[in-house]
Design a protein around this nucleic acid. Structure first.
Lengths: 232, 232, 232, 232
DNA sequence: GATGAATGAGTGTTCATTCAT
DNA sequence: AATGAATGAACACTCATTCAT
């Protein structure tokens, strides 16, 4: 479930941590364990609701209820709904690019194949899961939360862009692709990811919805671009 | 507020028309002329505010005030805020299709050139103007206003999709392109438009912002895809 | 259509008057005749809408439209909606008690029969027509228009009460009824009229609605009371 | 605001209860006690304002203020103004039926006496209090709130009708009354109640007002009808 | 006189936030 | 720390009334 647009359930993070601790020390009572888990549970609940219902359509009370606490408790941990939103985004932008970068290093095969692999596995690991909702959220609320855009840019856009650029450069360097401006070319790849994302999250109850098969589209898109870039 | 070439504020359209008429016939009374101009003025104001402040953050009273009328007057022309939204979509996006379809019919040149022309002139006429903000708006508010999505789908997505498909089919039919599934291929084209759109409207206050030159990107994208589709 | 709770369409009043005039003078053009008829047409339209939709649910624009004029014109004749309401009530409280009083004088038969005749013919002439809506209107808006209650009292309640009292007194005087307080007894008669009226106008779309057959009920009620009053 | 015998303001009911409890158990915190009292206080305030100013003329904010809370608090207990209306009906009229039905079961005496008792005690418990204004209210707003009429029908008219019918049937069964259609006869009884009601609430500022002594009228009316129904 | 475009005060309802307990 | 009752600012929409034409 983790990947480029990093996602990790807060709960599991917290629980792992808690478990680790509890193996060494005598188990605290349930109350205390819950107390430590609170913020994480709230972030999880908030992510889920924000993604599925939208930021403004989500009531803080729903988030609290979904996390099993009262409205007042939420405000104990997050001073405002806006802060909760920022925390949700921040918490879900874990850096998992190291993994992806490593896969890049170890990849055997042509760069064309690597491109296809990159797009398709984005879909399988991120796009098809709730994690892709983060991007939708950031885009939708961009006007209201410029800060959020800032750290999304830092944590996701730039690393992603850099990785794609390295892939393209590999193709150029090894002579598979012609020489071209990799910096610009990255956008053509990323556009497909954004497209699938918005299609999924904004055009949900839509007749045309089914006219797009994400995986096939991404595969075709990668192939098509690789064709265009190939040394002729 | 006017774009490079084709985007004309509703107001100016009306005014041009009125001016033309008034040169031949005695001018109608001021009250009537205003009545004809009102919807256009309101649509202009609404587009501007919706795009710059967001749909929900814009109060109908602001729109009215910005158009120089009172709240009540707005409701004289548009039954609800949501209808105003739809009217903005129609006036700024949907209305262009007849022209575009005609341009397609009359286009002289290769299909590759036509693709480039289509994407670049989208940028010049829509992308670079406030009108492009509408798409961002629809995506952002998709969860809250499913009916608007429906409307956007019907009035913009479908006609746009159909037009691109006809362009691709032209390329296939005249032997310039290989035979492929035009229906699916359209998505690769549209993804570039959406990408530029979101880049402009959601990543506005962003350092990377300048790393994308919309017109160059679109030109490259069109070229690249055409390369990939070309009969080998 | 006229009767105790007097009702006469304004239009016919006006028309009669107009006709009378026009038989002596050359007929004015249609415009002028309409002009004179305006207030009456408005009152008719208002009565109809007020009765069927209620006072506040009726928009002045609807009244105007229903009378075939514009909103502005209505305000030319009636300074406000409230004034229109008062005018409607006043115009429809014509005194038709003379007719009813005469019928009383000429009535052949027992007082019991007369009571039955009075209630049943109220239903036939008033209750079953739109005219009965006036009473509903007055009752409903009593709080907001105390004046209206005043002249309804003067024009309808008092004359009606007086007439019923004379009927009862006739029964007492001729020995058909025992001696009792006719003044108070009237209320028992009138209660049936009010009851049918409210049942009709306030419990319209109601399942129990059909459980009341107005004419039968009134007949029974009259019979029952006469039984009670009869000298034993 | 309290009536002769049975009408108890919601507040006092609650307070009595609270007092009783608090004599045995330590008092709950102030916040909680208020929470229990709130609905009653709001219902009292609403009844008072609705009856005296009319339903639409009463702003929810007025009701809240009159109960000493803010607008938002009212919506914590009643989902809408219409629901508040229904709750007022239930608390002040519908709630009485269990008691009344029980009194019917336990009543010792002739059916004639029971009829008189029923009408007179209606006056003492309801008619002479603000609660009687509800019927007037429902009648007045019938056109605007059909759902309220539905509710009133279900909760008040039907139970009331059923109760009166049982009383009449008792008289028929035990041979005190002749055999007749009890279903229809009920209307003659109810008409007196409605009459007194409308007289009180719609003809308030009226000279004739004093010509009706409710209790005497109801007593006479019951007697008169019983006479008519009596086996001859 | 007649029109109808324009007005703007008025109100039910929501929901993030506070704070006494 | 946790609760949840209370708050009140915010906002779309209606409609009687006005007045320029």
């Amino acid at each position: 479930m983790n990947g480029w647009v990093g996602y990790i359930t807060n709960q599991s993070v917290i629980n792992m941590q808690t478990t680790t601790i509890s193996s060494d020390t005598p188990v605290g009572n349930k109350r205390e364990r819950r107390k430590e888990a609170r913020p994480g549970e709230l972030l999880d609940a908030a992510l889920n609701l924000f993604v599925n219902k939208g930021y403004s359509a989500t009531k803080v009370e729903d988030v609290a209820a979904s996390a099993g606490v009262s409205k007042g408790t939420l405000f104990l941990y997050f001073p405002s709904k806006e802060d909760l939103f920022k925390a949700v985004i921040r918490a879900n932008l874990a850096e998992h690019f190291p993994t992806w970068n490593q896969e890049f290093e170890e990849f055997q095969g042509s760069t064309s194949e690597m491109l296809e692999y990159a797009l398709v596995s984005w879909w399988q690991r991120i796009g098809s899961t709730d994690a892709s909702g983060i991007t939708k959220l950031v885009m939708s609320e961009a006007n209201n939360f410029p800060e959020v855009v800032q750290f999304y840019d830092q944590e996701v856009i730039r690393p992603g862009h850099a990785l794609f650029k390295r892939i393209l450069q590999r193709g150029i360097d090894c002579g598979e692709f012609a020489t071209f401006d990799a910096e610009q070319a990255v956008h053509s790849l990323v556009s497909a990811i954004l497209y699938v994302n918005m299609w999924k999250h904004s055009l949900a109850c839509n007749a045309l919805q089914n006219s797009l098969s994400p995986e096939t589209f991404l595969r075709n898109h990668a192939y098509l671009l690789a064709q265009g870039w190939r040394r002729t």
